[in-house]
């Protein structure tokens, strides 16, 4: 099936993670123009290195969720021209809720939630000018089934899903739609080590008996960006190989 895209420019936040890079390559191959963000200059250089074969077909931009002042320059750089956003960016703060440092918790939600709401608002306003836009938020199956220690990660994911859901509700009539994806275990990035260590017990619980692949997830995201998928709006979709379906 050939996927059609009404727009061209894709903002990919958290652009240094394996999955974001895989998606960026896929979007560039598809003829879209990815704009990958990173929190640091080093991150931008790393992206440039891995995206070298796609020179001229992508760009990078600084966006630090811990620094509000990086939001305006980002939108200046992309000249307020945006059709899609895929939001991967997320930091981790693994603690039992009752043992968390209060200052660290405030900072965590400021970065992962308050900043994100500003980013979503700015992106939505940019898309409103074209009366078209699509946002895909990369959530996690941990949003609804966290492990002990994942309380902050899960609650920030769940709250972020709610922001995206409301954008889809509020602006769907103006051509801007959203979807949140909840992937399960992915054999990439920070999940890779965990999967390697726990492969046997983990796979025995997943009906498809394997973790999701990087490319497989990127292709799924690409489909959800496409015109064919805009009927999926203001909704969360789990794809975890069936892990959460059973007991």
């Amino acid at each position: 099936m050939k996927l059609n895209f009404s727009g061209n420019r894709v903002l990919i936040t958290g652009g240094t993670c394996d999955l974001a890079v895989t998606l960026a390559k896929l979007t560039a191959e598809t003829g879209l123009y990815p704009i990958l963000t990173a929190r640091t200059e080093k991150g931008l250089a790393d992206i440039d290195e891995v995206m070298k074969p796609f020179s001229g077909k992508f760009e990078t931009a600084l966006l630090d969720f811990a620094d509000q002042s990086t939001l305006v320059p980002l939108f200046d750089q992309i000249k307020d021209d945006l059709d899609y956003m895929v939001d991967f960016a997320h930091t981790d703060y693994e603690r039992l809720v009752a043992s968390a440092d209060p200052d660290a918790s405030y900072k965590y939600f400021e970065e992962n939630l308050a900043f994100r709401s500003a980013l979503i608002s700015r992106s939505a306003r940019t898309m409103l000018k074209k009366k078209r836009g699509r946002m895909v938020y990369i959530s996690s199956s941990a949003a609804i089934s966290p492990n002990p220690g994942q309380g902050f990660y899960a609650s920030a994911k769940l709250a972020s899903e709610a922001l995206y859901k409301n954008i889809g509700l509020e602006l769907g009539s103006r051509g801007i739609t959203t979807v949140s994806l909840r992937p399960g275990y992915i054999n990439a990035g920070r999940g890779k080590d965990f999967i390697n260590k726990n492969e046997k017990s983990l796979f025995s619980r997943i009906p498809i008996k394997r973790a999701l692949g990087n490319k497989e997830v990127a292709e799924t995201i690409l489909f959800f960006l496409s015109d064919s998928a805009t009927g999926f709006n203001a909704v969360e979709i789990t794809f975890d190989g069936g892990l959460s379906a059973g007991k």
Partner: peptide, 13 residues
């Protein structure tokens, strides 16, 4: 409210 949001975006542009 959605009309006002669109108006704000249009005024900005």
């Amino acid at each position: 409210s959605i009309d006002l949001l669109e108006l704000a975006v249009a005024i900005n542009a």
